[in-house]
């Protein structure tokens, strides 16, 4: 499957899809899109990359452990819910909005970004775990 065409196309597509995924995330509140779909689109980019490259290279490229990315996304979502509590005693996960320079910003966007990270992290974890040969995994060193 690791053909030249796929490999070279992926090089270009990877970046393009990632940009597209972020755009999908950001426009989500007013037009079709959102963190979940955006995260899935980014996952496709990463999966394509895993398809054609050595998993080790992918890990080097994304720098962090994808599972930690997912956990960080979850933490971000929780934090976005806490902001409402701290800034005026609203119930957990109440949206808070502010307009800065004509751009409306709100905790739901932060929450959506958390969802995005969880989805990317989780899918990348699945894909990498499947693709990696057993021997390079740290957990198997006790054999």
């Amino acid at each position: 499957m690791n053909t030249l065409i796929l490999r070279e196309t992926t090089r270009v597509l990877f970046t393009l899809i990632l940009v597209f995924s972020v755009a999908t995330l950001l426009r989500g509140h007013d037009a079709p899109g959102g963190g979940f779909v955006g995260g899935l689109i980014a996952s496709i980019a990463c999966s394509l990359y895993v398809f054609v490259a050595d998993p080790k290279d992918v890990r080097r490229l994304v720098r962090t452990d994808p599972l930690k990315t997912a956990a960080a996304g979850l933490a971000l979502a929780i934090v976005s819910g806490l902001i409402g509590i701290l800034s005026g005693g609203h119930p957990f996960l109440s949206g808070q909005w502010a307009e800065i320079g004509g751009v409306k910003l709100g905790t739901p966007l932060l929450f959506d970004f958390g969802v995005y990270l969880v989805v990317v992290g989780a899918v990348l974890t699945f894909v990498l775990e499947i693709k990696e040969p057993a021997s390079v995994r740290p957990a198997d060193s006790d054999k």
């Binding site: 989500g28 509140h29 959102g34 739901p108 959506d112």
Partner: peptide, 8 residues
């Protein structure tokens, strides 16, 4: 909810 996409 300050948004036009109801699903989101």
């Amino acid at each position: 909810g300050h948004g036009h996409n109801i699903v989101n």
